[in-house]
Nucleic acid binder design. Structure first.
Lengths: 227, 227
DNA sequence: TTACCTGTTAACAATTGTTTAATCATACAC
DNA sequence: GTGTATGATTAAACAATTGTTAACAGGTAA
């Protein structure tokens, strides 16, 4: 059903485990995935394959991600390639450097890439609106990322982006408790200017729309989805 | 099932027995464990392996834990490493020095490391929310740390944080008697403003929820769990 | 422009958890 | 038995956390 063969993604990271893990997830959704373990290799592959999206680790030996990005931006043939940085580093100057070098997006690198899969899907969707994203069914809830709506017992419900993302996150691991920090990290992406209580409001609105029974509060810890 | 290979933990302690004991417990949960017997060795290993968590004994000859921590904090590559101190010492000035040196957590060193396993798990969970924590099954009680609930004979019971922690502690060694001091130390972390009676109240509420038969009182000593 | 929708925040209400203190029960020594 | 020490139980005070509402800013479309 999924067919995203026309979308080429290049992942660049010197951490092989992370690389293979992310490759696996994206290949499952039929994207055409290329990998590179160093900045040099990345530039060679980028020139050869002309991918629509490059996911770049910032901290690499020899040539770091920011440097790679600069080279890409100098190459007119790669002018409309989207560059998305991944980094372990919290320091802001890195983030600024990343944008100055022409990066398009910046994601704090999670230990497990699947945490940000939905974020990457959104980027890929922006590049190619026709790309196919999977539909998830948990119990009597269906999440349709294509149409950006959820279906509960044949009833279609449209959700605003944040509420949708919130539900999607909780549903990514039913039963598992997500802390407020995790939620902020994943959906608001380290934007610590946003206050914690914002989450509560969105949870409240979500419950109002989809019913009380799905999202449970675990006091002092966070929220979880129960299917 | 457990796979926490992506999480590197460095334990630093000159007491070899404690070191090996804690190493064993963490390795059982598949964390990637490194050890060091001195401050110098710790810094070398830390630079080489870049662990996400360093567990540091404060009282060591030559270079003490606080000193090691200072060096770690000066190294930008180790900037987002979590440092957790372990110490025999009750004296407050040490604790203050530890935080001033950039420590993230401070645990009074127990005689057996397993007493603080759950605390360490919580820290590791904070670092990597997707890290797997074990599900414990003792007799007809199942403790699911992932979903934050316990199951007794197919019945799910949600417990408030302190009650959950209390049960978890007692269950960590069924049959073993935990003194009030140990319990306070582990769950309330040396917060001596809390009165001993508090434990009784929580025990009482726990028994009310999970039934009488599991938690036994050992007069004059403390409490134990019987499976 | 106006109207509408989303996301955010602040304020207040409601709920739940924790601790204290007072009272009750029991075991054991004398 | 009586008294003392210890633990159990309960209620109430207190603290922390979460839920809800309303107000507002910013964006977007008619």
């Amino acid at each position: 059903m999924l067919n995203n063969k026309n979308l080429k993604v290049l992942i660049v990271d010197d951490d092989d485990e992370f690389l293979q893990d992310l490759r696996h997830h994206l290949q499952k959704e039929k994207y055409q995935v290329y990998t590179a373990a160093s900045g040099k290799e990345a530039l060679v592959t980028a020139r050869k394959e002309n991918p629509q999206l490059i996911i770049l680790d910032i901290n690499m030996p020899e040539m770091d991600g920011v440097e790679v990005c600069r080279h890409i931006r100098e190459n007119p043939e790669l002018s409309n390639t989207i560059v998305c940085f991944f980094t372990n580093c919290n320091e802001n100057y890195t983030q600024i450097a990343a944008f100055e070098a022409g990066g398009d997006d910046y994601i704090t690198k999670p230990l497990k890439p699947e945490v940000h899969l939905s974020r990457l899907r959104a980027i890929l969707k922006r590049i190619d609106p026709d790309s196919h994203v999977p539909i998830t069914i948990i119990g009597d809830i269906t999440i349709d990322r294509e149409k950006f709506l959820i279906i509960i017992k044949d009833e279609k419900i449209e959700l605003p982006r944040k509420e949708f993302e919130l539900l999607e996150l909780l549903c990514s691991k039913p039963g598992r408790v997500f802390s407020r920090d995790e939620i902020l990290n994943s959906i608001w992406n380290k934007d610590f200017t946003v206050i914690h209580r914002t989450i509560d409001v969105h949870i409240s609105k979500l419950r109002e729309k989809i019913g009380e029974k799905y999202i449970k509060t675990v006091k002092g810890i966070g929220y979880k989805f129960e299917g």
